[in-house]
Nucleic acid binder design. Structure first.
Length: 787
DNA sequence: CAGCCACTTGTCTAGACAGCATGTC
DNA sequence: CTAGACAAGTGGCTG
């Protein structure tokens, strides 16, 4: 089918596609159009990665907009949201507007209401539903990308419930679900009342194979000699082999450490094939990476990048991740070794994909468990760059003939697993049942069960009554913690009034439906997007505090909620943090588990470790020191700080809600973690342009609050802040009447500025060691080193 | 005696969404 | 009940 034959699109859309070099639709796309994608019909497209799924979405959304509607595109990751938004923004050329809504992106609901296409993460959509964004009922088309993630234990239920809610909100909604090829696409289509388009067609050939010995055997029967020379590893031989043809490769491994070690080794292979220009550009990139963050991880990454290789995992900062991804797409980097982050993330195709590790540590399995077929296929699907490579190659590594055979059977010839709803897991239901009640989707127990009937879980359930049972447990839990109230139902029967209970009364009570209503606290929890269990923990912790909680107490409190990802204890650390615990026991909120409850006590200490990390950050320790001390990457640190900020913000709302007297303490702890400063700097840091480092330098020079910025000698300020432009900017933000720095010379400051007049001024460590304040910090560090 | 290797032992394990109100060095 | 890669340490061999 030619794009010219498409109808129902906004005028200009077809020529836009033609300008992009799209003439003929790919077969799956044509099939989708035939199935009614442009006519508002629902559809499930289960097709391989990179076979034009986005185009199917685009055609559906654009035709919906042309009919006067509004479309929503749901993605699983923030990074994908920005990628898609950039793609859809090009439609502005013919008058179709696009916006993005994620947790960290600027976005007011009013502003989104004006956009034709909105891109959002599933959690953000869920949150918008909970907060009653009224434009949601104007939606006529919703696209769910990577819908197979419904299978995910943690985040799948959110997507599932959100889709069910959107469809309930607007029964005529066109639902377009894009999925990898999975075992049961037909079930998903049934659930969504949608047509199914299923194919394994790909725009570029994908050859899958297994490397063993000196040979690479493909699924089509062909063989390629790839000798392993000397002591080199198989993946090194494979990377070198394809690099000599000018192709890049992607190596998937199962741990961060493996990714880093492999990148280091592969750097030797890649560096042999670099041109001088490439070396220069890579050196620049390496510099950029070192500038982004001053940590061991950054240095290691930069060292690799200089040689044309890189590692990629969640310990990298988001900046570093995009640097690596972009450079690989520009063919500057020859090889990336990555954990599975990359397989699910933004598009980074390579000529050859090497799945080195097909087993991953899984404590629940007690050891190494094989990866899902679906997951391996997702990785393999990254092979082949459209328009650049003649074909893509996906290779598994075997050590012997038996393993080679096993890999063919297990992954090459195998079909992916079916998608199974994980909704009946209690943690998932806890949060979604509360949200469903709070946002009025269900007002009775019956109504709740009816709503749950509309989920994929219900359509798949082989165990009748399971969902009902778990739902009842969850309702009990929510009621016990004052998140909901039940009234009028059979369970209340006779409990209160003690009056006579006749058979007739009983019958009547059983007939009457039990009503469910969220309490004010329950509404708050739902809107804040907290797991009810986190909220309960925080509420209980705040209520149990007799004295003003310390920052560490609050940090440990939020760190032990299920919304904080666990920082786990390494061997030996249980003792270290056990000591810290006895030192600072009094600061912790709520009841500590007994030491004899080993598992719970470990969790408690792990939360203390995370809390201590946050305290270190709020005591202005360097990023480098923290990442080294806790053996984490810069990305992990930022993630922790981010989450803590969010949770403490939520805790502040909860504190207000329950009239806690510690609201201010929570707010202060949050502000300290947000800016990474001690409380004496909180005022300074509220001035635009002043962060943790500048604030500390200003404070040391005797400028302790914004008022001082307005009155102090400009020479002193300039001396601290270096650049005139920066100084002017900050003075303006502080509200100084005459911010101009013209003709002002740096003056040496009163307190700590004596060594500060070096011209470069970029030594963040230099000024740390001077004042009483940092002496404190040092002390806490040495005590930390001891335990 | 230095340098290299082969082998042993101990350690450790993927990922990342959300509120709210505005802006790091 | 289940693994395996890496890094650091150890010991033996060679020149």
């Amino acid at each position: 089918m030619n794009v010219e034959e498409l109808s129902g699109l906004p005028p200009g859309a077809v020529s836009h596609f033609r300008d992009q070099g799209i003439e003929e639709l790919y077969p799956p796309q044509a099939e989708a159009v035939e199935a009614g994608a442009t006519e508002g019909d629902s559809l499930v497209a289960a097709v391989p990665t990179a076979s034009g799924k986005t185009m199917i979405a685009a055609l559906s959304m654009l035709s919906a907009v042309q009919r006067g509607g509004k479309a929503l595109y749901i993605v699983p990751l923030r990074a994908l949201a920005s990628e898609k938004k950039a793609e859809f923004e090009a439609y502005e050329e013919f008058g179709v507007t696009a916006g993005v809504a994620t947790g960290n992106y600027e976005s007011t609901s009013d502003w989104l209401a004006t956009k034709d296409i909105v891109v959002a993460t599933s959690e953000k959509v869920d949150s918008l539903v909970r907060n009653g964004a009224d434009w949601l009922s104007d939606l006529t088309c919703v696209v769910s990308d990577e819908v197979h993630l419904i299978d995910d234990r943690n985040r799948g239920p959110t997507l599932e419930v959100t889709l069910a809610k959107l469809r309930k909100l607007n029964p005529d909604l066109q639902t377009v679900a894009l999925s990898a090829t999975v075992g049961n696409a037909d079930e998903i289509a049934d659930w969504l009342d949608a047509e199914l388009v299923e194919t394994d067609w790909r725009p570029i050939d994908l050859r899958m194979g297994v490397h063993y010995g000196n040979a690479l055997n493909f699924d089509d029967g062909s063989t390629r000699e790839v000798p392993v020379e000397g002591s080199e590893k198989q993946e090194a031989a494979l990377v070198r082999d394809i690099l000599q043809e000018g192709g890049s490769s992607l190596v998937f491994v199962n741990s961060r450490r493996n990714a880093e070690a492999a990148a280091r080794r592969l750097g030797k292979v890649a560096s042999r094939e670099l041109t001088p220009e490439e070396e220069d550009q890579l050196a620049e990139l390496a510099e950029e990476i070192r500038d982004d963050s001053d940590t061991e991880t950054s240095k290691d990454l930069a060292d690799c990048v200089e040689r044309g290789s890189a590692f990629h995992h969640a310990g990298l900062s988001s900046t570093q991740r995009s640097i690596v991804e972009d450079a690989f797409r520009d063919r500057l980097l020859k090889v990336i070794s990555a954990t599975p982050t990359l397989a699910a993330g933004v598009n980074t195709p390579a000529r050859r994909v090497i799945v080195r590790d097909w087993r991953r540590f899984d404590p629940s399995a007690g050891g190494m468990a094989p990866l899902d077929v679906l997951e391996v296929h997702q990785m393999m699907g990254r092979a082949g760059r459209p328009g650049l490579d003649p074909y893509g190659e996906a290779v598994l590594l075997a050590k012997n003939h038996d393993e080679s055979q096993e890999l063919f059977d297990r992954y090459v010839w195998a079909d992916p697993e079916p998608v199974r709803s994980k909704l009946a897991a209690e943690p998932a239901l806890r949060t979604h049942v509360l949200a469903t009640i709070a946002s009025g989707f269900a007002r009775t127990r019956e109504g709740l069960l009816e709503f749950l009937e509309a989920t994929l879980y219900a359509s798949q359930s082989s165990e009748p009554g399971r969902l009902e049972r778990v739902a009842d447990d969850v309702l009990d839990y929510l009621e016990r913690n004052d998140f909901i109230e039940r009234s009028g139902g059979a369970s209340d029967a006779g409990a209160g009034d003690g009056a006579f209970t006749s058979a007739a009364d009983l019958a009547e009570q059983n007939d009457r439906e039990e009503e469910l209503e969220a309490t004010s606290l329950g509404h708050t929890v739902s809107r804040l997007y907290l797991d009810p269990m986190s909220a309960a923990e925080i509420v209980h912790g705040l209520e149990s505090a007799d004295d003003r909680p310390t920052a560490l107490g609050l940090y440990q409190l939020v760190s032990r909620t299920p919304d904080m990802y666990e920082l786990y204890l390494r061997s030996g650390e249980d003792e270290k943090f056990g000591e810290l615990y006895y030192e600072r026991e009094a600061e912790l909120l709520g009841d500590a588990p007994s030491e004899f409850e080993e598992e719970r006590f470990e969790d408690w200490l792990a939360a203390l470790k995370t809390g201590k990390l946050l305290e270190d950050w709020a005591e202005e320790d360097d990023e480098e020191r923290i990442t080294e001390r806790y053996k984490i990457g810069p990305g992990d640190l930022r993630g922790k700080v981010d989450t803590a900020e969010w949770l403490l913000g939520a805790a502040e709302s909860l504190a207000r809600e329950i009239d806690s007297e510690w609201t201010v303490a929570v707010r202060e702890a949050r502000a300290r973690v947000e800016h990474g400063v001690g409380d004496e700097l909180l005022e300074l840091v509220s001035v635009g342009g002043v962060g943790r480092k500048r604030a500390r330098r200003l404070y040391e020079a005797g400028i302790e609050e914004p008022a001082d910025l307005r009155n102090a000698d400009k020479g002193v300020i300039l001396n601290v802040l270096k650049g005139k432009k920066t100084a002017e900017n900050i003075l303006e933000n502080a509200g100084r009447e005459d911010p101009s720095m013209d003709e002002v010379e740096p003056a040496s400051g009163d307190a700590g500025g004596t060594t500060g007049d070096s011209s470069a001024g970029d030594e963040p460590n230099a000024n740390d060691a001077e004042t009483a304040e940092s002496a404190d910090a040092d002390e806490s560090q040495s005590s930390l080193g001891d335990f």
